[in-house]
Design a protein around this nucleic acid. Structure first.
Lengths: 132, 132
DNA sequence: GTGGGTGCAAACCGTTTGCACACCA
DNA sequence: TGGTGTGCAAACGGTTTGCACCCAC
């Protein structure tokens, strides 16, 4: 049961996410898709984003403030989220080995599987606020 | 302007957070404070938690799902948040040096200042779900 | 007395869900 | 035709906010 069926809406959402290089919110994707499918509903966008995330075809990124963001890049990688402006930057090649060592033994062997999100202040915002 | 005035509500919230060793939600703090101040409102709790966070006296921790959590521990440290059960574990002594090297040069010198939150699946949940 | 703090309730915002209809297989 | 997907709108949960009153200074 619950066999996956084709839908052009889901296809369009996936394609949109794969093509763009930013990390849009559900609403930003919704705006884009509505150009091609004016009747699509925001609920459908959320449902498909959740489904694609579950399938591992996209990544969901939680922000500290504001709405969640999505990443169409298939290759697993991590993110840096700016607390001030919400900007998201891809972080590749995180040194997992040294991270692992610092984690309590409760989590040994598990961190490897995780998507890690770093929060902080990006250079631009730090300069604006005189933190740098 | 905006001079900080004493309030026993804020004092009580701060004390409550400092004494406990878990990472409660605003609502959990609210429940506790109501024992001493039955008329306190949830809005006041949120206002004071935000204020204390801004003052750097407590830490706000964003969860992937569910409500934000708060940490009364003054010493800066990082967190591991379990995606499955929401459990939060303190992570001390993160190897910042190796992390820094892996970050893009856009953020060099800034990551050191950040609270980092690791997301993943805790050992217990991983065992429950057969991931381990 | 003045201006910040509180309690209350309504509003807010992102997200989820129930339902009837549409469409893929 | 059977069952999954959609559009719509209402509901939801956590959080914020406007307002009148209260209280620290």
């Amino acid at each position: 049961m619950a066999t996956l069926k084709y839908s052009r809406q889901r296809e369009s959402i996936k394609t949109n996410l794969m093509q763009r290089k930013d990390h849009p919110t559900a609403d930003m994707v919704y705006s884009d898709i509505r150009i091609e499918y004016p009747n699509i509903s925001l609920g459908t966008v959320y449902r498909n984003l959740a489904l694609l995330t579950e399938l591992g075809e996209i990544q969901k990124i939680s922000s500290i403030d504001g709405p969640d963001r999505y990443d169409g890049q298939a290759k697993p990688h991590n993110h840096f989220v700016c607390k001030k402006c919400g900007k998201i930057v891809d972080v590749m090649n995180t040194p997992m080995d040294s991270l692992m060592k610092s984690m309590s033994s409760d989590f040994e062997g598990l961190v490897e599987e995780c998507n890690i999100t770093f929060y902080g202040v990006c250079k631009e915002c730090a300069q604006k606020e005189g933190l740098i």
